[in-house]
Simulated scan of single mutants.
Amino acid sequence: MKNLQDFTVRLIAGANIATIVCMLLIGFSDRINPVSHPLLANIGLFFPVFLAINVGFLFFWLIVRKRMAIIPVAGLILAFVPVRTYTPLNMPEEAPKGSLKVMSYNVFNFSTWTSPDEPCPILDYVEAQRPDILCMQEFCSDGWKKDRILERLGKLYSHHRITDPKGGDPIAIFSRFPIIRTDTIHYESRANNSAAYHLLTPGGDTTIVVVNHFESTGLSKDDRRRFKAMLKGDIERKEAESESRNIWRKLAEASAIRAPQADSVAAYVERHKGKSIILTGDFNDSPISYVRHRLASVLTDCYVASANGPGISYHYNAFYVRIDNIMCSSHWEPYACRVDNGIKASDHYPIICSLERKKE
């Protein structure tokens, strides 16, 4: 009987170790360039699965055989970097008085606002939050929505710029501070873009605010709908396997397009090294991804540095992941970064962070 118990314990321990190995390989997969290895580019999406399994092992060992808990604990220590990237834990700190409040929000073309006679939840929310700098992705191109938006936000912000790619979704910035220059960051894209807005911030300093909307996942509405149905088990096995391959191929193709876009933005940041920079936007990629890692290698990820939990910012069709980000140069100290899931007027939640300018 004891031999059987020992064998079972060794078997479970082996499964725990295998889980840790997978967790580490996936956790550090954000170093792989999707251009060279597109099919490996999105395995970071599975990181929370293996993290959860390892935590499950931890509770199991604590109940069954406490000394074996060293295995999942060692796994968490070895995977500290990707674990912190995916779901950071920080001591809550209140933002110092005078900090800059920055918001990034993919507003989904204000598509849930269908009539000028109806209230607009997004505009109501912005007016309540009153960020000093508001960055928007998938902004409106024209029509009555754009007129109403500019009219209302014009009462809060003296300065704004809209950058509109041909055939794509505009990005926009609204600022309490003068915008003295705009640089378009060039890269290949059918409908997405990045721009750097030079703001004259208090004290006569110039801060470059980079707004990004990187290549989308390439999944159609029908793909997303079928993915959700697949998770629910509403699609037959053979069809589900075919659908999985199709979705994975599309995700891989989009990642291979997105990586050079992130490289172009990172190169722009590197060319302006030593200058005050705030970077925001919809990365359309998970926290464990080449895109986030590449930009975090040249800037501080404000969410990782000051937030808590996974911070899910995209919440449609069973794709629940943090794809919206705020980053900053070493000139700034981030405080209380958070994703606000209290407003559901878009397929994204807004991400907000307070930034204190460091003393020279």
Rank of each mutant, 00 (worst) to 15 (best):
Q137R: 12
K97N: 06
M68E: 04
L51D: 06
G218L: 07
P34N: 09
A128Y: 12
Y157V: 03
N341Y: 03
E93I: 10
R357M: 12
A259K: 04
L25Q: 13
G233Q: 09
N106L: 09
Y335N: 08
D222V: 14
T19E: 04
P202G: 03
L25T: 11
A52V: 07
R338T: 09
I53R: 03
T280D: 08
V339A: 00
T184V: 13
Y303G: 10
A74Y: 04
I71Y: 02
N16T: 13
F28L: 02
D142A: 15
V291K: 01
M91D: 12
L153I: 05
A296M: 01
I162P: 04
L51I: 11
V55H: 04
W113H: 06
L24Q: 01
K101S: 14
Y125I: 08
G14W: 00
T87Q: 15
R237I: 14
I180P: 00
A191H: 15
E151G: 00
P82K: 03
A266G: 04
S330F: 07
G281M: 05
N308S: 09
I343W: 07
P72G: 00
I149M: 03
V55A: 15
P310Y: 08
G203F: 00
T19R: 05
A259W: 07
K238A: 09
R224Y: 03
T300P: 13
A229W: 07
K101E: 08
L251V: 01
E236S: 08
D117G: 04
S255T: 08
L299H: 11
P38M: 11
I70E: 05
Y268S: 00
E241T: 12
F227M: 09
H160T: 01
A172S: 03
D234R: 13
S354G: 00
G342K: 06
T87R: 15
M68D: 06
Y157W: 06
E243H: 05
L295C: 03
T182G: 06
L58A: 11
A69F: 02
N3K: 14
I32M: 07
K146F: 12
R249V: 02
D164C: 06
M91S: 14
K145S: 09
E94F: 03
K275A: 05
A191N: 15
P48I: 00
S244N: 05
A252S: 13
I43M: 05
K155W: 01
R245A: 13
W113E: 01
K166Y: 12
F50T: 09
I12C: 03
L150Q: 15
C22Y: 11
F7Y: 11
V83R: 00
V73M: 07
V9D: 06
P350Q: 15
N3C: 03
D30N: 05
G281R: 07
I323A: 02
S141R: 14
E94G: 06
P92T: 06
Y290V: 10
A79D: 12
T87K: 14
V304W: 10
V211H: 15
I343Q: 08
F319D: 01
S242Q: 13
N212Q: 07
Y197N: 13
I277R: 04
G154T: 05
S189H: 08
T300C: 15
T87M: 15
V209N: 01
N212C: 06
T19N: 14
V210D: 02
D324S: 13
M1E: 08
S330Q: 09
L156C: 02
T114N: 13
I351L: 04
